[in-house]
Every structure is written in C-alpha cells, then in structure tokens.
C-alpha cells in the first residue's frame, strides 16, 4: 500500500476501485444502448438474409415518423404515461398521508397496501383479464349485477381497453408511489407540526405550507420513477390485450417488440427502442430541470 501513497496513488486507487463497477455499467447498460443505435441505422430482416445488413442512415427513423402505426403507438404511450403517472402519484400521496397517521393496526394496513405491488405483474395482469371477462368477470357483476344483457366485453372494446390497462397499472403500482412519499413524510420532524399548530395553522394550511414543500423531493422521485416505468410498460399489455383491440393498447414498447422479435425487423425494431430511450431520457431531464433545480435552490436558500 505504501506505493500507492500520495495524491496520484490515491487517484489510481480510486480508479481501480471504480473500474469493476464501470465495466459492469458499460457492458450491461451502455453497450446495449450503443448497439441498439448501431442496429437502428441498418436494414436487417431476419427472414431475408439475402438483403444483407446495409447501412441505411436514418431511413428507419424516417419510416418510424411517417408510419401511422408507430405514431398511433406513440400517442397511446403518451396517453398511458400521462394518465397512469398522474393517477398513481396522486393516489399514492393520499395513501401515504393516511398511512402516516398513527392508528391501531397501521402495520397491518401498510403491509396490505403493498400487496398489489408485490404480486408479479404477469399474475396481476392475468387476474385483471379474469376480472374484466365479459361473461364471468367480477367487473360486470359489480357494475351491472344480474343484468346479463348489458354485460360489457371491456377488453374487446377499443374505447375501454386502454382504460382497463391503466386501471390495472394504477391498482398495481400506486402502492409504490405511496411507499416513496411515505418515506418522505416520515422525515418531516413532528415538532414542526406542533409549532405550526401553536401558531394557529389549520390542517389545510399545515398541509399546503409544511407537508407539501417538505415532501416535494420524495414526490419528485416518485414521479420520475413512475414516468420512466410507465414509458416502459410491456407485461400488462402482453398479457391483457396483446396490443389489441384494434391496436388500442399497442404501446410503443409492445410495437417495437413485435417488430423485432415476432417479425424479425431488427433495424426498425431497434429504432423504436432508441426512440423510447430518448423519450424517457428527455422526460427525466425535464423533470430534473423543473423539479430538481427548484428543489436545490429551495434547499440552499
């Protein structure tokens, strides 16, 4: 170790310690992204090897932008991300506020709230398929009771299907948002509330001027996580609708998956994944800019 003494040695040691981690990140995170970008610039059709793999520049991206199916999928994805993220973070916040109060059996309720999140998505999706079945599903029984004639085929109707997938996602992951917000709530010192109460602040004022600003960092984290996850929604669609009915739930990830794995268009499918990647990256950067900076300023001010 003596040889490593001094600032230079220290720097070397730091790099040495970082290197394994960097190598893993490069191999498993960075390289696939680069490789996807490279693939997306070529035309590769698996079942037509005679075409070779010519470099086509941005042709795949040009087609992606002009193809009605891809645009439709992009629209569906944005609708899914907007609706599910908004609902999950608001519902999660409400749940967190309730769970933050002390009441008898709180531990049990907290555990129960987490159950949907703990169920594997594939199992949950299958369960929702049963619930939404047009003949023996629970949903029809809840909404229409014994009136069999008006039973709806929820997953068969282009108008309802996306809503059904959003509902399943909200049911499943609101608890995750709740967990993060709850963690944020727990860090707020209790004496602040006592002081505010002594100063005559009502419950709404305490929430508006105390809880909300202090829980904002946690809220932002929940928002970023949920948005990124929502962009990558796949398993719910895979199990519940396979992108149907009439492509009404054909989110970008599923569209790209079908292009790449079922149809063998490796180049075009890669362009779709790169697009999703860029969208997620853009959204994360916007969040960081909007929420992150204000937070930093708020904290240092």
């Amino acid at each position: 170790m003596a040889a490593l003494a001094g600032p230079r040695g220290e720097r070397l040691l730091a790099w040495g310690l970082l290197l394994p981690c960097l190598a893993v990140v490069c191999a498993f995170a960075f390289w696939p992204i680069v490789y996807s970008v490279v693939l997306s610039l070529h035309r590769i059709v698996l079942s037509l090897p005679g075409l070779g793999a010519p470099f086509v520049g941005l042709e795949n991206y040009a087609r992606l932008l002009s193809e009605p199916g891809a645009r439709h999928s992009a629209g569906i994805t944005l609708a899914f991300v907007g609706a599910s993220t908004l609902l999950e973070v608001s519902l999660g916040t409400l749940m967190a506020l309730a769970l933050d109060k002390s009441f008898r059996g709180r531990g049990l309720v907290r555990a129960a709230v987490l159950v949907p999140w703990a169920i594997p998505t594939v199992v949950a999706s299958q369960m929702w398929r049963f619930i939404l079945n047009d003949r023996y599903g629970l949903m029809n029984w809840l909404v229409f009771g014994g009136d069999v004639g008006s039973y709806q085929a929820w997953l068969a109707s282009p108008g309802w299907a996306l809503g059904a997938v959003i509902l399943a996602d909200v049911w499943k992951t609101s608890a995750f948002a709740a967990l993060i917000v709850l963690a944020g709530l727990q860090t707020i010192p209790r004496d602040l509330y006592e002081a505010a109460a002594l100063d005559g602040a009502g419950p709404w004022q305490r929430f508006r001027h105390l809880t909300l600003p202090l829980v904002l960092p946690a809220l932002a984290v929940a928002l970023v996580f949920r948005t990124m996850d929502a962009f990558r929604v796949f398993d719910l669609v895979y199990v519940m609708t396979q992108g149907g009915p009439a492509n009404a739930t054909n989110v970008l990830q599923f569209y790209g998956y079908k292009k790449m794995f079922a149809e063998g268009f490796m180049g075009y499918g890669s362009a779709v994944s790169v697009l999703v990647f860029v969208m997620v990256l853009a959204v994360s950067l916007i969040y960081l800019k909007l929420v992150g900076r204000r937070l930093l300023r708020g904290e240092t001010a």
């Binding site: 037509l48 282009p158 149907g244 009915p245 009439a246 492509n247 079922a262 149809e263 063998g264 268009f265």
Partner: peptide, 21 residues
Amino acid sequence: TPLYPAVSQGLQVYFHRAISD
C-alpha cells in the same frame, strides 16, 4: 411468405379494426 409474421401482424390489425368498429 417468408415474412409471414409481419404479414400476419398487418392482417390482424386490419381484421380487428375492420370488425370491431
């Protein structure tokens, strides 16, 4: 056709759009 998976996807989307609305 060698591109059956892609053709099938096209047919599925068309048929389902056509008959569900």
